[in-house]
């Protein structure tokens, strides 16, 4: 059953009492809060997400609440707990939703049965493009541009590789848009739902793009990693594509770590296998059209000539 299909009053009660159980990246995460404004935002952004039935084992529990009983009335700060531990210092009530978003990222990285890398992932026709890049390079923006042009969102933040076969799992949270990219995506996809803007956060203005329905309903489908593209956005810059060296790609994929260290040999083998088998490119772009066209073109090449895209392993 979908979250949005439960009568609203029942859902609110469940958020307060036992928590609502969401399936994300193959995990079951219990989300609990008694902060009405946050429940409102979750309903807007997560309406299409599948709910896990009744009781069962949670992989993690996320609980957002007022920092103290008094904080409900004055000061208005909230705290988020993951499995009973507070994750950050108390934040302003109007930024509370941001804590939920980070807490969910945290939960997925903390489950080390999967390899989790810092990269955006989108899929088309069963093949996935992985976009590793440091924060602020515009990977979420490209990801938003792709998924509003028919690609399926796997994640704008975390690439989640399943241990069994190294395939990519969907972790399709709403896409985080920052500062200029909010207006950029509004213009690019006028029909998409974008949350009200959270102003004055540590990362400036932030807003969240609701993923296409298709991305949410097909969340159980995994995808095959096929292409690595490291994007850089520069206003007005011409499109430039350069091959990305394999060791460079390895560094980029493992740079911000997430749970790479903890997954040990599985992590190394997965990333090395990925770098062996997927063509990797560095892409700088000045407009979203250019970037989307270029990535679609690269994926089409992989699809047409699968052998060329999987060069012989160069291990000695």
């Amino acid at each position: 059953m979908q979250l949005g299909a439960v009568p609203e009053s029942a859902l609110r009660a469940r958020f307060r009492a036992t928590g609502v159980r969401l399936r994300l990246a193959g995990l079951c995460i219990n989300l609990r809060t008694d902060v009405p404004a946050v429940i409102e935002q979750i309903l807007q952004l997560y309406g299409g997400y599948p709910l896990e039935p009744g009781a069962g084992t949670d992989d993690a529990r996320v609980h957002l609440k007022y920092a103290s009983p008094l904080r409900r009335f004055i000061g208005r700060r909230t705290l988020v707990f993951v499995d009973g531990e507070p994750l950050y210092r108390p934040m302003l009530l109007r930024h509370a939703y941001l804590m939920i978003d980070s807490a969910l990222d945290w939960c997925v990285s903390a489950n080390v049965t999967n390899l989790v890398l810092h990269a955006a992932v989108a899929e088309r026709g069963g093949l996935a493009v992985i976009l590793p890049a440091p924060s602020g390079s515009g990977k979420s923006t490209i990801c938003a541009a792709l998924v509003t042009r028919g690609w399926r969102l796997l994640s704008d933040e975390l690439a989640v590789f399943r241990a069994a076969d190294g395939r990519l799992q969907s972790f399709a949270l709403p896409i985080t848009l920052k500062n200029e990219s909010i207006a950029l995506i509004r213009q690019w996809a006028p029909d998409a739902y974008i949350s009200p803007v959270f102003t004055g956060t540590i990362r400036g203005d932030m807003a969240f793009l609701r993923p296409p329905t298709d991305s949410v309903t097909r969340a159980a489908e995994t995808a095959e990693p096929a292409l690595i593209v490291s994007p850089t956005y520069q206003v007005g810059a011409p499109l430039a594509l350069q091959p990305l060296g394999k060791s460079e790609a390895f560094r980029l994929l493992t740079a911000s770590g997430m749970n790479y260290y903890t997954t040990q040999r599985f992590g190394f083998d997965t990333v090395a296998g990925l770098v062996d088998s997927c063509p990797a490119w560095r892409l700088s772009y000045g407009t979203l059209e250019q970037a989307v066209d270029a990535i679609e073109d690269l994926l089409a090449r992989v699809r047409m000539d699968p052998t060329a895209s999987r060069p012989a392993i160069t291990t000695t």
């Binding site: 790479y260 090395a272 770098v275 160069t314």
Partner: peptide, 24 residues
């Protein structure tokens, strides 16, 4: 025992199970 590595473009990336670390 269990060392595993890749050599790409004259750079070696080595996973050393004893230390649990990846070296370039």
């Amino acid at each position: 025992a269990g060392l595993t590595w890749r050599c790409w473009d004259d750079e070696y990336i080595v996973f050393h199970p004893w230390s649990g670390m990846t070296h370039y």
